[in-house]
């Protein structure tokens, strides 16, 4: 166990002292401060119906109504796009850079179980993501309290905590994916580019592709049964994207007034008024409805990490 902690501490130290971590922290921090700042100035228009969860509205209020749907336009949407980048940044060279530098063969010739190395790397990345997200949420909340002069209620604090948990799991998925590519590909550049490509695809291209499919299917249906059937197919299709899983689950947690924010709902229901329920759902009910999404995200993370783990355990490491 002690060698596990040795590797873990070294990795953690590496993360926190690396330029790329400082850089990504700054990017995330600036983006989220900006988002909350703008949200705070729009909050009067945003909070119309009930005055519950005003504080949480800071995180979900869109920055401008005219912005294209492709550009993240709330704190939540920003997080959906930036957390993957954090995960990828911390994991894309976890194994292959050590292999290229020749430190890996020195490392495995020490009395260390091989799985301790990859486990420690994953844990160190996960803890780094957690610390980063926690500090971002705290900073943003602090700014929010200053801006709107309203402290969060107990339930809002709970909801923010659950948001953090979802964010960490989401980040861990991208970390696991990046570590997987770092074990699969010898070159650091290749593993970085492939991780980024997958992120780009789900963040920007998949929604476009999906919209095409949704529009095609939405137009052809006439009976109620087929509408529902189409709707379910579309939801499944949409949930292929891990980003969508995050979006859906966090919006339910942070915007209890909305039951679901599936994009295709907006295609079916043009009147946004119907979209907001008169009464917000309770925390328990919110958790219940995001539970399956969360399980899927955890599962994806485990699959990625397990593949990386197996690849790393059974490959031969030689320094040539």
């Amino acid at each position: 166990m002690s060698s596990f902690y040795t590797v873990y501490w070294k990795e953690l130290q590496d993360h926190f002292t690396s330029w790329r971590f400082i850089f990504i922290l700054l990017v995330v921090l600036l983006a989220s401060l900006y988002a909350v700042f703008v949200a705070a100035s729009n909050i009067r228009q945003a909070v119309t119906g009930s005055t519950d969860f005003v504080f949480l509205a800071l995180f979900t209020t869109t920055l401008s109504s005219t912005a294209s749907s492709l550009i993240p336009n709330s704190f939540l949407a920003l997080m959906a796009v930036l957390i993957p980048i954090v995960g990828i940044t911390l994991g894309f060279d976890a194994i292959n850079s050590e292999r290229n530098e020749g430190t890996l063969s020195r490392l495995i010739s020490q009395p260390v179980y091989r799985d301790n190395i990859i486990n420690a790397k994953f844990l160190a990345g996960g803890i780094t993501i957690s610390i980063l997200l926690l500090s971002i949420v705290l900073l943003v909340s602090g700014l929010g309290i200053r801006l709107i002069g309203l402290p969060p209620t107990a339930e809002e604090v709970w909801r923010l905590l659950f948001f953090l948990v979802i964010g960490i799991i989401y980040g861990a998925f991208w970390l696991g994916l990046a570590i997987l590519f770092s074990t699969l590909f010898k070159q650091v550049a290749v593993s970085a580019i492939i991780s980024i490509a997958i992120w780009l695809f789900f963040a920007f291209f998949y929604p476009i592709i999906f919209q095409f499919i949704a529009q095609g299917m939405g137009g052809s249906s006439d009976t109620q049964a087929s509408i529902i059937r189409n709707y379910q197919t579309l939801i499944t299709l949409q949930r292929i994207s891990p980003i969508q899983l995050f979006n859906e689950s966090t919006i339910v947690i942070l915007a209890p007034a909305m039951r679901s924010v599936s994009q295709m709902l907006q295609l079916y229901i043009s009147d946004i008024g119907n979209y907001l329920l008169p009464t917000p759902i309770s925390l328990g009910q919110s958790l219940l409805s995001v539970w399956p999404l969360l399980v899927v995200t955890v599962l994806l993370t485990i699959v990625c990490f397990a593949m990386a783990y197996l690849k790393f355990m059974f490959e031969e490491i030689r320094a040539t």
């Binding site: 530098e101 020749g102 430190t103 063969s105 020195r106 010739s109 030689r318 320094a319 040539t320």
Partner: peptide
Amino acid sequence: TGYIPEKVGFYN
């Protein structure tokens, strides 16, 4: 056992 691989590397 100590081992020095052919392409030995350190954390730069």
